[in-house]
């Protein structure tokens, strides 16, 4: 246990580097396939962070849903829109990149200072939440959220199917 705790800063640094590199690639790569590879890398880094936060179930779901399902959906979108070799159009003029830097960096600086000054950690080690308690909560205390997310998913899927039919009719 002691050895594991001594290792944790290195594990954190490794995951942070994975997240940083992946996010930068996802935001800046011209080639959409490369940007997707960066996004998947960042998602895997976030899964590692969930493991460090003692939330292994969420980490599993991150890998299953994001890395497994959502990324495949986006790959399909890239494939079906026939962007030549996945290349996106020019990243934009330099003024647009400057605007992007401002929009990206300003909230980052403000929120980092807010986190440093106001966020107080109250628990030294994150608690163990067994999966069966998560399931019980989902079906008792938070049943409304569970039902609502089901409705949202259903409406989204039905909407996607209707949009697909619309496309076929206009051909």
């Amino acid at each position: 246990m002691q050895e594991l705790q001594a290792l944790s800063p290195y594990a954190y640094g490794l995951y942070l580097l994975i997240i940083l590199g992946g996010s930068l690639a996802a935001a800046l790569c011209k080639n959409l396939i490369r940007a997707m590879a960066g996004l998947i890398t960042a998602m895997l880094g976030a899964a590692g962070m969930y493991m460090m936060l003692n939330a292994p179930f969420v980490a599993m779901m991150q890998v299953l849903i994001y890395v497994g399902a959502v990324s495949v959906l986006i790959f399909f979108a890239i494939m079906l829109t026939k962007t030549p070799a996945g290349d996106s159009p020019e990243l934009g003029s330099s003024s647009k990149i400057a605007a992007g830097l401002v929009v990206g960096v300003m909230p980052f600086v403000f929120l980092v200072s807010a986190c440093l000054n106001y966020f107080k950690q109250q628990v030294e080690t994150p608690p163990d939440i067994p999966v069966d308690q998560l399931g019980q909560d989902l079906l008792t205390r938070y049943a409304l959220g569970f039902e609502l997310i089901s409705v949202v998913l259903f409406v989204a899927m039905a909407g996607a199917v209707i949009l697909g039919f619309e496309r076929r009719r206009s051909q």
């Binding site: 940083l20 996010s23 935001a27 996106s88 159009p89 647009k96 929009v103 990206g104 909230p107 980052f108």
Partner: peptide, 16 residues
């Protein structure tokens, strides 16, 4: 926050 900043950066600079 790193993910937030990179997401905002990409959202404003990307055109497709």
């Amino acid at each position: 926050l790193v993910m937030l900043a990179c997401g905002l950066l990409g959202l404003t600079t990307r055109r497709d």
